[in-house]
Structure formats: C-alpha cells, structure tokens
C-alpha cells in the first residue's frame, strides 16, 4: 500500500473532484423530470461510477489481490444491476 499510495496521491484529490461532480449531477437529475425508469437507471449508473472510483482508488483495490478486487466490484455491479432491474 505504501508505494502505491504515494504514487496515487494526486489521484486522491482528482477522485474527490470526480465524485463531487457526479454527486451534484445526480442531485440535478433528481429534479430533472425524467421518467421514473430513466431516473433510476441514471441514478444507479452514477452510483456505480462513483463506486468504481471509491473501490479502485480510495480502497486501493486497484493494487489488491484479484479475489478481493473482484469480490467488491462484484458486489457493486450486482447490487447496481439488480436495483436498476427492479425499477423496470
């Protein structure tokens, strides 16, 4: 983690900006008069994108063993997908 954390330092703030932007986008979308299905798709897709960044960079799973990385990504993908599906 030590070497990797160092290399990724600038990423910490870039990721923060990215996540903040996505959050504001999601909040904007909520009031944007989309149909419920489209809104759910958009909201959970945005959530999935945010999750990707958190898992890869903040949790540093980018540099973690494959099994751990896949498990957490799997969780994120499964939950997002099933929830999107439940709105359809």
């Amino acid at each position: 983690m030590t070497m990797n954390a160092l290399r990724d330092f600038p990423t910490v703030w870039r990721v923060w900006l990215w996540l903040t932007a996505l959050t504001l986008l999601a909040a904007f979308l909520a009031d944007a008069h989309l149909t419920p299905g489209h809104l759910a798709l958009a909201a959970l897709s945005v959530a999935w994108l945010k999750g990707l960044a958190i898992v890869e960079h903040y949790m540093a799973l980018r540099h973690a063993p494959a099994w751990l990385r896949l498990t957490v990504h799997g969780w994120l993908a499964l939950v997002s997908a099933v929830l999107i599906f439940s709105f359809l």
């Binding site: 419920p36 909201a43 945005v46």
Partner: peptide, 11 residues
C-alpha cells in the same frame, strides 16, 4: 453512495 441513489434520487 448506493443508498443515496436508491432511496433519494431514484424516485
């Protein structure tokens, strides 16, 4: 992040 999207945004 998931909860926010699910409960608050996806309405």
């Amino acid at each position: 992040v998931v909860l926010f999207a699910l409960v608050y945004v996806a309405r």
